[in-house]
Amino acid sequence: MASKVIQAIYNDDDVLMMAVKRVKEAHHHIEEVYTPFPVHGLDKAMGLAPTRIAITSFMYGCVGITVAVLMMDFIMIEDWPQNIGGKPSFSFIENMPAFIPIMFELTVFFAAHLMVITFYMRSKLWPFKKAENPDVRTTDDHFLMEVSLHDNEDELTRLLVDTGAVEVKVSEKH
């Protein structure tokens, strides 16, 4: 594995996008790009795989609705069936309409919270986590591209400076 990376800093998103495309065309491996805001199309240009987080949300939602159904069936039908307002609770399917609000809310609850937790875990976000952006300006108005080095510093530096980087430096990979 490459232990050294070259970091190029840009001060404009359009310049960054063109740079990313050129670096990709030259067949260099872009390790990471740090940006202060979501640059649209950057993930595609970098060749990042699409995120599957929406799929996890769907699965969590399925878990939520299952939990709700089982809970309603156990609490209202199995464990302690009551005759409320002349509507006896002997059958889940007949009483189901009254449970729809709960089923809906729990679906949303599970889908939303578990997805966000998944996102935090996958992107390593939690309290007391140390930030890993190599330059503090990348949360303000600078964009930093990290390209892995394989004894091709000169070539890469030239390329990166040529793409409009305002700063290029070599750094050890942390």
Partner: peptide
């Protein structure tokens, strides 16, 4: 408070997807 947010391209990709699904 920022949970160590670093602004990686992948983080942003997930961030936008999460926002949309939420």
């Amino acid at each position: 408070l920022s949970f160590g947010w670093s602004g990686r391209a992948k983080d942003w990709q997930r961030f936008e997807e999460v926002s949309l699904v939420l």
